[in-house]
Design a protein around this nucleic acid. Structure first.
Length: 720
DNA sequence: ATAGGGTTACAG
DNA sequence: CTGTAACCCTAT
């Protein structure tokens, strides 16, 4: 962590918008699952999967969502024994491990955990039996089946079926997989109620007909929405009433962890206005930004954050949240609280020239459950994003300059809400800033614009922690999981895709080759091609093509590859699996990229999105020997992006690979994050206690031996 | 389960 | 081809 301490993160427009998209598609995927439209579900998950490879604002609840999607996609494919999400495991076994993660990150009643687990195991056994895979059924039975009294009977029954090699039995007939799926969905929904996505809310608020407001959509609704979105959602600006603005603000503030209530903002604005009354433009600029602390992101993962913070958040925070919520919604009110959240230090700047109006009133809307709020909050904190809202009011308006929330609590605020303005325009834009450690006073740019000063509060370290995330986006994102994260999502994807593609697009050199190498790979490919190839070839039909070394335009290449993949993914449905799997094109996964920027290196923030992540990618690790921390980091993430093989992470969430035949191993470079965990683990448990360390951190795809080896390497490199 | 030496996959 | 991080294998 120390190393990363000075990073600051910024969000690009792409990250923010992708986040909106992510939320939307998760929502849609759940709706589809609920409607038993599993085809649509897989389509949505593919979208998500691909989206997550791009830079995404990784919010804490993103992890939760990813895990849910991951869980459901495994459940969805649980009856297909030939699919695999994680190497040797069947989809349902993978679901069990996701379940564990979920239980670790969220508080799930023990009973519920057991019940779900048992349901999965029983279903798995039945699936194996139905499929005639008795040996596997037996293995599952032995390994997982609980000996609880209530399941003893079933266990016996299954044992006898296995013994007699019977794949049909009334019990097997009785339980339908479809019911099981819905049961699992219920579990997920009980656990985590997905809030209505921001995009939908915007759509609704823009007055688009046909969009209903129930949080949980029905399929028909979905359709409508979708189309609606396509139709008129093009522009970002919408006309909104103050009330709407308030609502939107409520949503945004939650999402971005802004702790100041709308009312407060208004108030402050008013005050400010009083002080400075000069200009009269009917515009109100509201900019909210959180400054990130300059902490290290490196150290933790989101998941970890989630875990830790979550637990810590607890009551107090919750209470706070509640308060905020109320306030924001509230009608009258008093405000308070500003100070607490200080940590987050959101900066809010408002400049407006508008004047305020009378009190008004309407409750805004926060429709998220308090529970989610917390999570989001945390995450939010961690992120520094800025949302800039400009409101232009035709008539005068109110604006309150927001003051830094942190400190002072403002006395009661009086809210002046005026609905008056029916026509306010809200523009949202995110400002991306890079805040790297680099230094710059964060505020400068904005400040100039707005008179207010930003407050940068300092976040205490605690918050820093929050942010940490090295990857917040990255890992989280996508890969969602923090841990595994490291592996590069992209990579994996690519592997996967490759497979599909190989079938579909054999002709292209890219594909054929890719297994071997891919972008960065060109050189490598030539070198190692042979070796790799053999494995691949064996499986695959495509002949190895020569690999034209791809000119390197990584970015473009990558992209195209990706696209291709996507396309193919759809088709993929049918092909169970080509078995070719292979190496990965080393494209830096988007995921990684963002992460990199944020957490690690930060190369250029500004470009973060612009220059595609891919661009950075091609390079791989720096020489270990280089001592500079910076360098080291860089190397690391680069590594991350590079190779890989199986995934288990968030990224892989949805798609399964069907080939179980993976052959040689591919190296998965260690990420900074993982190394940090390892260091922390060694500190905590001591050298040699690899297994303990492994289980104490969200490592994925790492064995105790791997940790030990990595430690050895780190020692050698004097990284510790 | 861990330590330590050998092997493999890659970067350069 | 060389160097090396990551990984494998095996004795303990």
């Amino acid at each position: 962590m120390s190393e990363s301490a000075s990073k600051v993160r910024s969000l690009s427009d792409e990250q923010i918008i992708n986040r909106w998209g992510f939320d939307y598609y998760v929502f849609k995927a759940l709706s589809a699952f609920r409607d038993a439209d599993y085809t649509a579900f897989t389509h949505f998950t593919s979208i998500i999967e691909n989206l997550v490879v791009r830079p995404v604002d990784g919010h804490s609840d993103m992890i939760v969502k990813l895990r849910c999607m991951q869980f459901l996609s495994r459940i969805n494919n649980g009856d297909k024994l030939d699919l695999t999400f994680e190497e040797p495991k069947t989809p349902l076994e993978s679901a069990l491990s996701v379940l564990e993660s979920i239980c670790r990150d969220m508080s799930v009643p023990l009973r519920e955990q057991e019940r779900v687990k048992q349901a999965i195991i029983e279903t798995l056994v039945m699936v194996c039996l139905r499929g005639g895979e008795f040996a596997r059924a037996e293995e599952v039975l032995l390994r997982h089946f609980s000996d609880a009294a209530d399941s003893a009977g079933k266990k016996k029954l299954f044992e006898s079926l296995i013994r007699r090699r019977r794949s049909s039995h009334s019990v097997l007939q009785l339980s339908s997989y479809a019911d099981f799926k819905q049961d699992m969905l219920d579990f997920i929904e009980r656990l985590y109620r997905v809030p209505e996505p921001f995009l939908l809310q915007m759509l609704k608020r823009s007055g688009h007909p046909g969009v209903s407001s129930e949080p949980v959509t029905s399929s028909s609704q979905d359709r409508q929405k979708t189309s609606a979105a396509a139709e008129d959602h093009g522009s970002v600006s919408a006309r909104l009433s103050l009330r709407s603005l308030r609502q939107v603000y409520g949503v945004l503030s939650e999402r971005y962890g802004v702790s100041v209530s709308f009312t407060q903002l208004q108030q402050e604005l008013e005050q400010e206005e009083e002080e400075q009354e000069e200009e009269e433009c009917p515009e109100l600029h509201l900019a909210l930004s959180e400054t990130q602390p300059e902490t290290a992101y490196a150290g933790m993962t989101i998941s970890r954050l989630v875990q830790e913070d979550d637990s810590q958040l607890s009551a107090e925070e919750e209470a706070q949240n509640e308060e905020e919520t109320q306030i924001s919604e509230g009608s009258s009110a008093q405000i308070c609280t500003p100070a607490r959240h200080t940590q987050k230090h959101n900066r809010i700047l408002l400049s407006s020239d508008v004047e305020s109006e009378g009190p008004a009133a309407s409750p805004p809307a926060s429709r998220r459950s308090s529970r989610h709020k917390q999570q989001q909050k945390k995450s939010d904190l961690s992120e520094s994003e800025c949302v800039l809202m400009e409101v232009q009011c035709s008539s005068a308006q109110v604006c309150s300059p927001a003051r830094p929330s942190s400190s002072s609590s403002s006395p009661a605020v009086r809210r002046s809400d005026r609905d008056t303005q029916r026509q306010s325009r809200i523009l949202l834009s995110s400002d991306v800033e890079s805040e790297d450690h680099a230094a710059s006073p964060p505020a400068s740019r904005r400040s100039s614009r707005h008179k207010q000063q930003q407050k940068k509060s300092d976040l205490s370290e605690s918050e820093c922690v929050l942010m940490e995330v090295q990857c917040s986006s990255a890992q989280v994102c996508s890969p969602a999981r923090p841990s595994s994260s490291s592996s590069s999502p992209a990579v994996r994807r690519s592997d996967r895709d490759t497979q599909r593609q190989s079938r579909i697009l054999l002709s292209s050199d890219v594909e054929s080759e890719d297994h071997a190498a891919s972008p960065p790979a060109s050189r490598r490919s030539s070198r190692h091609k042979q070796q790799q190839k053999k494995s691949d070839l064996s499986a695959g039909e495509s002949a190895p093509v020569s690999t034209p070394a791809r000119p390197s335009s990584p970015a473009s290449v990558t992209r195209s590859d990706r696209d291709t993949q996507n396309q193919s993914s759809e088709m993929e449905v049918e092909d169970g699996g080509s078995s070719v799997q292979h190496s990965t094109p080393a494209r830096p996964s988007a995921t990684d990229a963002p992460r990199q920027n944020r957490s690690v290196t930060v190369s250029s923030e500004s470009e973060d999105h612009s220059s595609s992540p891919a661009a950075q990618t091609p390079r791989r690790r720096s020489s270990p020997s280089s001592g500079g921390a910076h360098r080291r980091r860089r190397a690391r993430w680069q590594d991350v992006s590079g190779t890989h093989e199986n995934w288990s992470d968030e990224e892989s969430l949805f798609s399964a690979t069907s080939d179980r035949s993976s052959k040689k191993y591919s190296r998965k470079m260690w990420t900074v994050q993982e190394s940090e965990w390892l260091k922390e683990g060694v500190q905590r448990f001591g050298v040699g206690h690899w297994e303990k360390i492994r289980s104490a951190f969200p490592f994925t795809g790492r064995t105790a031996v791997n940790l030990k080896d990595r430690w050895r390497t780190m020692l050698k490199l004097r990284l510790v």
